[in-house]
Design a binder for these strands. Structure first.
Lengths: 186, 186
DNA sequence: CTGTGCATGTAATCCGTTACATGATTTA
DNA sequence: TAAATCATGTAACGGATTACATGCACAG
């Protein structure tokens, strides 16, 4: 039955619909867009994407608008798909990120020597600093008006930049805290 | 075979081992510790945890140290488990978070009206501000020397605080950017 | 005519969630 | 003795990753 909705919080669905609002595309095309623009916010594998397109088509949220050489199927978003995307964007509250491997490790840093714990935190600071450098580079190479994705993409880039700054500062602070605690004990 | 390792990046395993370093505990006990202290960094369901304990026991990383009433099984970490935890903490680089539903939405904010887009960003700022308030509250109620988990737990709390500050500032800035872009077009 | 890229699909496996299912022990 | 809590497990399902498998089309 086409009335069957699949679960609410599933974002690959919306990522796919979102990319299709920029024009019809094949699974192959979309896969590249996922790699180019969404790699850092919502990665998708080939396997997953082809499956998803099948489900979206069955649900009437996309259609096969054209077929090309090599079995190419060009998908286009339908009005229903568009409505679903806007509904998700405007009315469904985003689920906060619940898991952080980085922080999980922090909880158990007491199992290591203070030196090793500091090393861990210093590494976090270094990695964050490196990421910052990359992002600043990226910011200069992004064409300010290369399509609508870039407009809001800039906001996402700024988020990542601010995040990595925060992470670096925190890790530096935390390493220092560990150092202070160590001295306090001696 | 006890030589069989399961996959490398699986953190429920390490979260469980980590909690067991604070002393033997049953699945039931651990579940509460997951809810009390790890809810915001690595949540686990009952179903998952009992399964995991079985696998850890089969792999020799934990053992059933004692059995109590109501079929209670008290698990204890083994030297092998301890070694595995330390190896993970010290030598395996943490996997960065790849997915952010919040940012995914930002990429498609162009599908909404600028007013709706700003509303989304303003909501992010509000939610972040509320989280901050909760965290500051929490910070005052946490006993400074209530066990070793609290020591490094403080670092995690500080991370969350800085994160929510960053998020609020970013969202406010981004909403303003949208406003400016809108005015620029008019 | 050969390699590179375009193009789609399936299978196996694992992690995570929700729901179902059961029962023993303590406390009021 | 009834309710709350302790305590463990299984089943079903969906999402994500990796690997496998196939084949057409075009450029050099």
């Amino acid at each position: 039955m086409s009335m069957m909705n699949y679960a609410a919080g599933v974002s690959l669905k919306h990522a796919t619909l979102g990319l299709l609002t920029y024009g019809p595309a094949s699974g192959y095309d979309l896969l590249q867009k996922f790699r180019e623009s969404l790699a850092n916010v919502w990665p998708a594998t080939q396997s997953q994407l082809y499956g998803e397109l099948g489900k979206l088509a069955a649900a009437g949220l996309v259609t096969v608008a054209a077929e090309g050489p090599r079995g190419r199927k060009e998908y286009a978003i339908t009005p229903e798909g568009s409505a679903e995307l806007r509904h998700w964007l405007g009315e469904v509250p985003p689920a906060p990120n619940r898991r952080s491997e980085m922080l999980l490790r922090v909880f158990f840093l007491g199992m290591l020597t203070p030196e090793q714990a500091r090393e861990y935190l210093d590494d976090r600071a270094t990695v964050a600093a490196e990421l910052q450098a990359e992002l600043r580079e990226l910011a200069t190479t992004v064409d300010p008006d290369s399509g609508p994705l870039a407009v809001y993409g800039r906001l996402a880039l700024e988020w990542a930049l601010r995040f990595s700054v925060m992470q670096e500062e925190w890790a530096t602070w935390a390493a220092d805290e560990v150092r202070r605690a160590q001295e306090g004990v001696e």
